[in-house]
């Protein structure tokens, strides 16, 4: 393994530049912060309003459904903070600007995720504060095990999110336009993860567990944490909640191997 020093230096520089842009675009920063608050605020308000007349959703109260949201937001904002720019890959390829990543001496994927821009950890901070409030609403009993499971769900969940986005972005090496596919995956991710998995039919449950395993980001860990493990029809094996880091590692490995194939393909077309 070659020296990692250039990587650390580049990565530190990447964050230094991000914070410099923060100082430069302060007004923009606040606009996006308010935007984030309104976006998530209206999603959470929708959950609350949906369940106003219907207090139970397959054994989940509205506070618990909001907990699902909070857990998902934690992982996805971690992914957004660390790996946001992977979504730009199809755009780089389409514009014919991807080649520059191939000729530089650092790993191309590393270069992609360290493209400086207006990337700030604001959403991660808001998501963490929100989670801190919601864990009180559901009376989460803190133990070392609970903390470990949460950490695993957050980091593993971020990698699941990253892996899926990387895989979809990699398709751009073969297909120039994939807006529809991206849209479907995004909808599965943001709309379908809002509610307990048990409300869906077998096909959707399978898809969300083993193809695009978004259920491991929030539903399975939350089921373990909130003891949704002995509820008759909706019982969930408590072990599943612990598997998020493993699923994250597996899916990320698969996505990375797919990405490497995409890179080879790109070389051969030489565009």
């Amino acid at each position: 393994m070659a020296s990692l020093a250039p990587y650390w230096r580049t990565y530190a520089e990447f964050w230094r530049l991000n914070f410099l842009t923060l100082a430069e675009y302060r007004a923009n920063f606040f606009v996006w912060l308010v935007f984030t608050l309104v976006l998530h605020g209206s999603a959470i308000a929708t959950i609350w309003l949906t369940m106003n007349r219907f207090p139970i959703m397959n054994g989940w109260t509205w506070q618990q459904v909001v907990f699902l949201y909070a857990l998902y937001w934690l992982a996805s904002s971690l992914n957004g903070t660390l790996f946001f720019t992977v979504g730009d890959v199809p755009w780089h390829i389409r514009e014919g600007r991807f080649d520059r990543f191939m000729v530089r001496p650092l790993d191309p994927l590393f270069q992609i995720i360290s493209q400086p821009g207006q990337i700030w950890p604001d959403e991660l901070i808001v998501a963490t504060i929100f989670f801190a409030i919601v864990q009180g609403l559901v009376h989460l009993q803190w133990t070392i095990g609970v903390a470990g499971l949460l950490l695993g769900a957050m980091v593993g969940g971020a990698f699941i999110d990253f892996a899926i986005q990387l895989a979809v972005a990699t398709l751009a090496f073969w297909v120039v336009r994939l807006d529809t596919l991206r849209w479907v995956v995004m909808s599965l991710e943001t709309d379908f993860t809002r509610y307990p998995l048990s409300i869906y039919n077998r096909v959707v449950r399978f898809t969300l567990s083993f193809i695009f395993p978004f259920a491991f980001i929030n539903y399975f860990p939350a089921s373990t944490l909130l003891h949704k493990t002995a509820q008759g029809d909706y019982a969930v094996n408590p072990l599943l909640g612990w598997l998020t880091p493993l699923i994250g590692a597996l899916w990320f490995t698969a996505a990375y191997l797919f990405w490497r194939r995409g890179l080879d393909h790109h070389q051969s077309t030489g565009s």
């Binding site: 949906t50 219907f54 207090p55 139970i56 048990s198 039919n201």
Partner: peptide, 10 residues
């Protein structure tokens, strides 16, 4: 899926 669960439960 959402409304059928909510109507069935409540």
């Amino acid at each position: 899926a959402l409304w059928s669960a909510l109507y069935a439960n409540n």
